[in-house]
Design a protein around this nucleic acid. Structure first.
Lengths: 217, 217
DNA sequence: GTCTATATTTCGATAGAC
DNA sequence: GTCTATCGAAATATAGAC
């Protein structure tokens, strides 16, 4: 029987659709549980409950807990990399760095669980994504350092160390996700409002851009 | 038999000395294991091996894994608070904030395990030290915000949001401990040298101080 | 205060009917 | 592709001799 004869999707096939949908549900539940409990504290039972599936089904889609975790971390890394595009699409330093900070702040707000899983993975010496750090991340970082150094050499910004500027942007933007609970506690126990997120983003942009000899946009 | 008749220490007592020494060894091992494996990934066996003691002895000194973990987190918080003194001992903003950044960078280097345990605790919604966040940390933060705001009102620094400045200092300095593995990977796999730590500290101070309208010292 | 042996629980993973 | 029942491993915690 031809798949295309069955219904809506022409090429995918029913089995593939079910698989894709279930994987999505499981991955979302896993991201949250891994973030809230850590890899060691997370249990397949917890993830299954949050996904609304029997525990055995998780093992049907992801053979082991490690495999499920690996997929969660890889997905996060992709989102993280995509934000880097905002860096390259602008030619002048203030726009480029400002846009990059804004993109990273948006990710911290939209993917707080993913950010925590990433932080946890790196804190535990990156047992799963060490190869990404050594290849993709290292290449991206070196490229951006060169771009910033060029701006400095051209006298378009203050002569700071590009590497430590990048670390500061990563640290500060991801702090709003990873330490979100602390920030919420210091905000009278309430999550940041839209207005407060904007204020945070503006503060970060303002201090960093002025700190490297540029004006905030 | 009187304790003071037994030997070196007059008031402590032999039992108390042994207890103190063993607790220290256990707490140091626990700090490292909790940092490297997370609370859920850490096992009493691992901690016992690292401390060079039988597993049962850990339970003799700390009834449960939770109790041992709580002590580790509380000890770290105390170190963290002590660094805050550098903030108050200087009257002018550049000296105060510069010294605070330096103190926090020193702690990141000297207590990387503790920093990671703290980060992990906060990322998991502070199940153990939530009360500290709501009392001690909140009070300290509000006090420092007022001090910074006074400097701004007196025209001694740029009108930035003091709260987000504090978050930036915390995030950036602790990043060198919590994400130390990533930084090491991006440093050709080698830990930062003395010289590199100094360069990092200078970069952070330079960008932040200039970013809030002050000059680096 | 120390340490071996073990009780008890929990978790990851699988078997096998449907 | 789904789900119940369960196995086997590993972990926390304790008992009890020394």
């Amino acid at each position: 029987m031809d798949d295309s004869a069955q219904g809506s999707r022409a090429r995918a096939g029913k089995r593939t659709d079910i698989r894709r949908a279930n994987e999505r549900v499981i991955l979302q539940a896993a991201e949250r549980v891994f973030a809230e409990a850590g890899f060691g504290g997370a249990t397949m039972q917890l993830i299954a409950d949050m996904a609304g599936l029997p525990k055995a089904n998780l093992h049907y889609y992801f053979a082991t807990k490690e495999e499920l975790y690996r997929r969660v971390v890889e997905d996060i890394f992709q989102i993280w990399l995509r934000a880097a595009d905002s860096f390259d699409d602008a030619p002048d330093p203030a726009t480029a760095i400002g846009a990059y900070i804004e993109a990273k702040m948006r990710i911290s707000r939209q993917h707080p669980f993913g950010s925590k899983v990433w932080a946890s993975e790196v804190m535990h010496a990156a047992p799963v994504i060490q190869d990404y750090l050594e290849t993709t991340l290292r290449a991206w970082t070196e490229g951006r350092i060169k771009a910033i150094q060029r701006w400095i050499d051209d006298g378009r910004m203050a002569p700071i160390d590009p590497r430590h500027l990048l670390y500061m942007i990563w640290a500060t933007t991801q702090h709003y996700a990873d330490f979100g609970h602390q920030i919420e506690t210091l905000n009278a126990g309430r999550p940041l409002t839209d207005r407060q997120w904007k204020a945070a983003t503006d503060s970060v942009k303002s201090i960093i851009l002025r700190g490297i000899g540029l004006v905030a946009g």
